[in-house]
Amino acid sequence: MISLTDVSKAYSSSVSIGPVSVDIDAGGITALVGPNGAGKSTILTMIGRLLSLDSGRIEVAGHDVVNTPSKAIAKIISVLRQENHFVTRLTVRQLVSFGRFPYSKGRLTLGDEKYISEAIDFLDLTDLEDRYLDQLSGGQRQRAYVAMVLAQNTDYVLLDEPLNNLDMQHAVAMMKQLRRAADELDRTVVIVLHDINFAAHYSDRILAMKDGQVVEHGTPAEIMRDDVLTRVFNTDVQVVPGPNGPLAVYY
């Protein structure tokens, strides 16, 4: 379980996030939704201890993320940021192999290689594994980053907008793969999504944020309602029944 207690972050006197108190159950996929600037990335990166807290406490599987050594956390939580940029030139496979660093400390064993191959295959990158990242399309690169995080083989996987740059086919494939990771490998996935319909279809819980606060937290059925979505996104939203569950229409 991920539990946040009075977590807050003040970027400046006018922009502050929180205080947020929320418990995210272990297992399954939790989608983090909300308008731009709501604080989704801030909360996600604080859970992944990439950003320091100004106050409050975050525990993941009983470990305080601030006080537990980073080394130990790296085997429990993996986190991918919204933007990634590397000064070094890396191939897909080299990048993914870094996901094994918490275990291998740089000396890859055959077991590590197996995890790396699996993560690459999992994201459909087998044919591209020897390509350099700068020779890939944005979506292929995005999948390579996710593969690195999966190779890290942690119980908790935090992803900030992993569907960025993905086409329809790959966005669906990515969500199915994360679904499989949650169902078959028992991972707890927390994912920032902008498409509420994706969130409703593929996730078990939806956490909606607005103006630095958690405003809704519930199952897709509870969140997929006209009034709730209209309030969260400041846009008129109508929920209509679709072939595979409710659909939000906002255009």
Binding site: L50, K71, A74, K75, V79, F98, G99, V149
Partner: peptide, 8 residues
């Protein structure tokens, strides 16, 4: 960020 994620 990546270095922290990987436990450094």
């Amino acid at each position: 960020d990546n270095a922290t994620n990987l436990g450094l």
